[in-house]
Computed example of a mutant assay.
Amino acid sequence: MAQVPYEVYVHVPFCLRRCGYCDFNTYTAVDLGGGVSRSSYADMAMREMDLVKEWQLSHDLHEPPAHTIFFGGGTPTILPAHDLVRLVAHIRDLWGIEEGAEVTTEANPDTVDAAYLAELQDGGFNRISFGMQSAVPHVLKTLDRTHNQENVVSNVDAARRLGLRSSVDLIYGTPGESVEDWRTSVEAALELDVDHISAYALALEPTTKMGRMIASGRLPEPDDDDEATKYEIADELFSQAGLEWYEVSNWCRPGNESEHNLGYWRNVDWAGIGPGAHSHYNGLALRSWDIHHPKMWGTSITQKRVPWADSETLDSTMCIEEMAILGLRMREGLDIAAFEKAAGMSIPDVTLAEFEREKLATIKNGRIIATRRGRLLNDAMIAQVVAAVGA
């Protein structure tokens, strides 16, 4: 049996400013106490890597060289480029890195420049994911973003000159964003001539600044129909420009998929490093997650303990549900035979017929492949498949 690919995710929990919509595990303080600060973070993360490797070996997990590395946040590029490069080098020393492995960092467009990107490229990075979000000033202001579109253009150009692949992230459904505002942002992203674009519906949590403003009536509530219209516009314009969807929220020119994200959707092994980061190990049917607060995370590392808040063993029902979720979100679709084998039950023909009749999916080569309508109603499709096999 071929070995499951292995990925490493590094979470950097620092931001210059916390965006009003964000509920990620991020902090704006320079020093969070307990030995965890921006200046010491790389060293602490490398110490966690050492502990994780020891834990893996103690559980007879011998992971292959990293297939991908991804730095997320927060804002990884708030750290000096040298620190990100040192972390990549430590991963190479501990686990090895595959020849041609994808090495990505997220980047806020106003925290990098050509010199910073060149240092990353020299240190082994080959892909940058820029948080563009919007090209419209009033939308960026509502999102509390500090960059402008000129930052995005100049840095994508600099990355291209260095031979770095670029992706941009967009958000649709921001309060006050018109359909034309969204069209402007999509067209601006396409003008960058990047090979990968992600577009996510604004997800609001009541505990965020924006969530509180909507609850108090100071901002209008996002509208599902508006978001569906904007998704359709994005899918249409991306398709016309030669970018194909390969996951519900991701489009690329063929061959430019995010290998790291594909690994998540294909349930490979990965180690999550940093406060709140998740890990996944197939051989142990295990999912774990790090302590969220950086100070407590750092204390655990200092005490030479893997800084997990908790973990869970994935039972058969959870695995079946994940199989449906991951398969139906991807263009390659849900493998019916593999799913039925795992579930020990067949998906009723009437369910498959309904998907086709309602234009939610096509059944092709033994796979359920979501249509555009099916992507918009993806959660309902997943629930129907899971219910159909009694999981």
Rank of each mutant, 00 (worst) to 15 (best):
N365V: 03
A343V: 02
V8M: 07
N267E: 14
V268C: 11
T26V: 12
N25P: 00
V268S: 04
E180M: 12
L326Q: 12
Y172C: 09
D269T: 07
L61K: 11
P64S: 08
C252T: 08
H260Q: 07
E106G: 05
P275E: 06
S216I: 01
P307G: 04
N151T: 06
G242Q: 10
N282I: 00
I91H: 05
K304Y: 07
V153T: 14
W245E: 04
M345I: 10
G74C: 06
G123M: 03
D193F: 04
I91D: 00
T28V: 14
R18L: 14
S58H: 05
A118H: 12
P65W: 05
K209V: 12
E221L: 07
W245G: 01
I301G: 06
Q303K: 13
E244W: 09
G344V: 07
S346T: 13
V268E: 10
Y116S: 08
R218I: 00
D315G: 03
E244I: 09
T28F: 11
T75P: 00
R38D: 05
P65R: 04
R212K: 15
A309Y: 10
Y41A: 15
G163P: 02
R266G: 02
T351W: 06
N108K: 03
S39V: 10
T229W: 05
R17Q: 14
G390D: 07
A342V: 01
W308Y: 13
D349H: 05
V386A: 06
I78K: 04
F70L: 08
E257M: 03
V389L: 09
G124M: 05
A324K: 06
K53Y: 12
N250M: 02
I171R: 04
E98K: 14
D193L: 07
D50E: 15
N148M: 00
C22A: 08
R17S: 15
I320Q: 10
H59W: 06
M132G: 06
D225Q: 12
R287I: 10
M318R: 13
G344A: 03
E321D: 13
V12N: 02
